[in-house]
């Protein structure tokens, strides 16, 4: 199974998305309330296109969702309990992989002991 790998890809997207100061700031602002991309762009000294690009990176990491209202695109936070549950279960899986490694080490020791 490639569960771990999928989670790793998801983590790559997440950490890349959050590795930028402006994007973290966007997350904070839309955490307060849903906003259009143009409203967001007005709060920064960079271009509309630059903000649009930042939002796209956040969207790929499933951190935000966009919906259309009239001529505007509204951006809102997308972190629900399920997302949190997936993340935590992936970490719990790693705990068991570690346990598995330790068990194998113990089993190998006892094998050596019983050999003549």
């Amino acid at each position: 199974m490639v569960v771990g790998e999928l989670e790793e890809n998801e983590a790559d997207l997440l950490f890349h998305a959050l590795a930028d100061r402006t994007r973290r700031d966007i997350m904070r602002r839309i955490g307060e309330r849903e906003q259009s991309i143009s409203a967001l762009a007005r709060q920064y000294e960079v271009s509309f296109a630059a903000i649009q690009k930042h939002v796209a990176v956040l969207e790929r990491a499933s951190l935000v969702t966009k919906r259309v209202r009239g001529r505007e695109k509204l951006v809102s936070g997308n972190v629900d309990a399920l997302r949190r549950a997936s993340r935590l279960l992936a970490r719990y899986e790693r705990v068991w992989r570690h346990r598995d490694d330790s068990i194998i080490r113990i089993l190998n020791e006892s094998e050596e002991r019983t050999e003549p």
Partner: peptide, 21 residues
């Protein structure tokens, strides 16, 4: 590594791990 499968279920908050030794 002998974990043969892992199956997280986020709705029921369960994790099933199968290992072979």
């Amino acid at each position: 590594m002998t974990v043969v499968s892992s199956n997280p279920d986020r709705e029921s908050l369960t994790m099933t791990i199968v290992c072979e030794f």
